[in-house]
Design a protein around this nucleic acid. Structure first.
Length: 427
RNA sequence: GCGACCGUAGCUCAGCCGGUAGAGCACCUGAUUGUGGAUCAGGGGGUCGUGGGUUCAAACCCCAUCGGUCGCCCCA
């Protein structure tokens, strides 16, 4: 029986991982500029944390969580998203004290038991941000512009930012009832799914993709027309601030997020370059969640973006330089020379060079082939003759020229050679 | 959970109406003694996803199962 990985998960191998590291590095830089600090949260939590925050009737909680009982009988779940854990950590470590806005980011794997598909995996990676402790619309907009700046640095085009407001704990339930009432007149015309949604999550009807339902949805009451006064003011301010940064966006009154904790501003970034799973990033405000877990009233704003989807739309074509290459590939000819080069390699590395060799040894031709494949800038050739004469050969792999360098002053000589950037321009 | 298509060398794929497998790339070796990338010549490598069945005979037909891809649902 051949062993194989679990369905819907995958290994990220060298050649691919460089892209991830590059994206993560840029993320850290950008987030740091906006004052966000990293938090590492556990990969699993008590099941209740997720079921309560995400919502008992959501698809995630109802059928997508990896839940198990541990040896002590505790119900444990592999995290399907990050916000719940950050909220838990925020309360557990009393980060609300002293009062100030806490700005955190995380990156790592999430788990959802779904049918694998383009841009959808059972273990997938998210980068997320949470700004906790204020309902100032400046934070909403700052986070959205941070995101767009991040995408710009990655070289992305063809993105669309869509925003909506879902209202608060005050006006949202009222709107929900209004909506239900309006839908009830059309139940026999709407698709089967929407009939379920009517009971469980009526806002989702607005999001249906069935042509006929969309027509009906157009006529249904929209959140934006049923916001209470403070929510309306808040949403207006968000738009004014967005305008001031000249960030392009569009209003989408059909934009309803699938997690229960969202309030007020919600947004999504979709890419035209993806298939059915076209949302790269989703987020919004969640002003009541901290309180629901018995923390102090703490309005928050955050987002999560999917790494796999993000990476699949980044134009990496012109970024061939992501893979690292050694400075020097050392070629040793013969038993004695291999023993000598082993020590040389150790010293070169200690001096800061990245160095590799062909462990199998073999003919010079074969070792030079390896050197070539490694894409190293130089090869250092050490054979019987060189050991006798005390002069090694340093070959520039791009120009093909080589010269002798004294064994007694190896490190300094190599440093001099490598300092000349003239020969290091390889595309 | 549902539907469609697919699963042959490391990779991309060919294999007609069933007769026990091939190409390109990659890899290895060589083309005058210790020198890579180009060319040329050789070479290694597959229990045809797995398990059953039909048949004298199956990579090709049937069933099951696992996996992949694409959609539905949902979401990142």
């Amino acid at each position: 029986m051949k062993i194989q990985s679990i369905r819907g998960v995958k290994d990220i191998l060298p050649g691919e991982i460089e892209k991830w590291q590059w994206v993560e590095e840029i993320a850290r830089n950008v987030f740091s500029k906006y004052g966000f600090k990293e938090i590492r949260i556990p990969i699993f939590e008590k099941t209740k944390l997720f079921s309560k925050s995400i919502g008992e009737t959501t698809d995630i909680v109802e059928k997508e969580m990896y839940t198990f009982t541990d040896r002590s009988g505790e119900q444990i779940t592999l995290r399907p998203e990050g916000t719940a854990s950050v909220v838990r950590a925020y309360i557990e470590h009393k980060m609300y004290n002293p009062p100030s806005v806490v700005k955190l980011y995380y990156m790592g794997p999430m788990f959802r038991y779904e049918r694998p598909q383009a841009g959808r995996f059972r273990q997938f990676y998210q980068i997320g941000i949470e700004a906790m402790g204020t309902d100032n619309p400046m934070v909403d907009v700052e986070v959205m512009t941070l995101l767009m700046e991040f995408f710009r640095l990655l070289g992305l085009t063809g993105l669309e930012l869509e925003i909506n407001s879902l209202g608060c704990a005050d006006c949202r339930p009222k709107y929900r009832e209004t909506l239900k009432e309006a839908i009830s007149d059309h139940l026999d015309e709407l698709c089967q799914n929407c009939n379920h949604r009517y009971e469980r999550n009526p806002l989702r009807v607005l999001d249906c993709k069935v042509e006929r339902d969309r027509e009906i949805a157009k006529e249904l009451p929209k959140t934006k027309d049923h916001l209470c006064e403070s929510c309306q003011t808040n949403f207006d301010q968000v738009q004014t601030l967005l305008d001031s940064t000249q960030t392009p966006y569009s209003l989408n009154s059909m934009l309803v997020r699938g997690l229960d904790y969202y309030t007020r501003t919600t947004f999504e970034v979709v890419s035209t370059g993806l298939g059915a799973q076209n949302a790269i990033c989703g987020g919004g405000r969640y002003d009541s969640l901290v309180e629901e877990f018995e923390g102090p009233p703490t309005p928050c704003f955050g987002f999560a973006l999917g790494m796999e989807r993000l990476i699949s739309v980044i134009p990496f074509g012109d970024k061939k330089d992501l893979e690292s290459r050694p400075d020097i590939f050392v070629v040793g000819l013969g038993e004695e020379a291999k023993f000598v080069t082993f020590k040389i390699i150790h010293e070169l590395r200690r001096d800061g060079f990245s160095v590799d060799q062909d462990y199998a040894g073999g003919s010079m031709k074969s070792q030079m082939r390896k050197a070539n494949k490694s894409a190293s800038r130089f090869s250092l050739i050490v054979g019987e003759n060189e050991i006798k004469s005390g002069k090694y050969l340093l070959k520039d792999m791009e120009t093909g020229s080589q010269n002798e360098i004294p064994a007694t002053d190896l490190i300094n000589s190599i440093k001099k050679q490598l300092a000349h950037p003239s020969s290091s321009s390889r595309a």
